[in-house]
Write a protein that binds this DNA or RNA. Structure first.
Lengths: 140, 140
DNA sequence: ATTGATTTATCAGTATGCTGATATTATATT
DNA sequence: AATATAATATCAGCATACTGATAAATCAAT
């Protein structure tokens, strides 16, 4: 039976988590990937599309579309890099910053729900083991 | 920092796992969701589109497209249910069955790589904790 | 038996996420 | 300085994966 494999459980967990996030982030009008991009921009204002894509582990083409959506909603704005003829820097607008505060609360809440029946040790153990899985997959 | 949260690590693990699967399943000509659908069909021949969607936790609309792709590759065939005027049952072709055997080996191999630096106890612990996460999210 | 609710298949539209392709700018090499 | 390499932006196309909508068949309940 396929449902017993660790890979299956990882996939299913991500799927349910993503579903909850999309559901509840809808209240502030963004999707989960859009939230992720905004969060990275909050840590590092003015990243280019290519840099943002690398931070989110996405292709530049995918990130280009995500930024397009955020721009249409006026949550980010793009300005040509003064010291570079090709880079276009992306910046959070004040609306974007405001929205992000609400979004963070929503996501923290979901994460809290998710781990509500685990001890701190169990959470840390799981995090550590999954990090090891990532490393092993990347080395292979 | 966002990179420290359990939800982030779950997402990243699933992303790398999916990437390895897409990469290596390409050798037999299927995508990861197509492989998943074929695997369910192997356990239960002749499921309808709606039933298959529920088993894979996908919408019927999404599954409809996936089956369409598999049908075009002659890995499955669809036959009207004799005792039902609307259901269309999906069955693995002999090519589908043959391909699935190779695909299973590929996926088992990747899963083995992924967990190669974990003990059986760590794998079981991780599986159990993630299953708890799913339950908590579903209850919320 | 007719009505009403559910199930199923499937069309259309949007948002990811990928590969492939192209053009432009920067950078490194000679 | 000229050329090759790399980085960046962005177009197009395909495969998921979602919601919304519609039509047809089944089932439940009077």
């Amino acid at each position: 039976m396929v449902g017993h494999r660790l890979g299956y459980v990882i996939k299913r967990t991500q799927q349910v988590l993503r579903s909850r996030m999309d559901e509840q982030l809808d209240a502030v009008g963004v999707t989960t990937p859009q939230y992720a991009a905004l969060s990275i921009l909050e840590e590092d204002q003015g990243l280019s599309n290519a840099e943002l894509a690398r931070r989110c582990f996405l292709t530049p083409q995918t990130m280009h579309k995500i930024i397009g959506g955020l721009e249409a909603k006026r949550l980010v704005e793009r300005k040509a890099d003064p010291s570079h003829g090709r880079k276009i820097n992306t910046l959070l607008t004040s609306e974007g910053k405001k929205l992000l505060k609400k979004a963070h609360k929503i996501v923290q809440n979901i994460e809290g729900e998710m781990t509500s029946d685990l001890t701190e040790e169990e959470i840390e153990e799981t995090r550590k083991n999954l990090a090891q899985c990532i490393e092993s997959l990347e080395d292979s």
